[in-house]
Amino acid sequence: MSQSAPTKTQRPLSPHLQVYKPQMTSVLSILHRMTGVGLTVGLMLFAWWLVAAAIGPGAYAVFMNFAGSPVGMLLLFGFTLAFFYHLANGIRHLFWDSGLLFKIENAYKAGYAVLLFTALMTAATWYCVLNKGPYASPSVTATLTAAEAEGETR
């Protein structure tokens, strides 16, 4: 009997990631990491912005032109969303690091507060940007036109 080929024992398997119902706590946790990586990509835009400003008005206008383009605005909107989410949820994490908000209902309440803060702050920021910011201001329209003119002459 011991000489026969070992039969495969049916051991119980631990439930894997895909069989879990997504919970707010786990979804917000993975979103924290995803927005963190997203913000890292945003740092490249941030670096482009500063380096362009140091190079001069031409390079700065190219950046501003990109920032005003649909792709640029989409990236910046994502950056704003990720920024406010990561900021608020990071503060939630700092509470946990200090041993607070561990009761499951408090973890959930703080989670909803994070989502509300993210939505409100992103909306408020873009309300200001679209109504008072570069897309509404004559000086940047001038910068953008200058960039376009520069692009045409090249």
Partner: peptide, 19 residues
């Protein structure tokens, strides 16, 4: 980043020279 939001509100939409 709170300072940064304030700084952006002061400089967004300004020319290169003002920025």
């Amino acid at each position: 980043s709170l300072w940064f939001l304030w700084f952006l509100s002061q400089t967004i939409g300004t020319s290169h020279a003002e920025f």
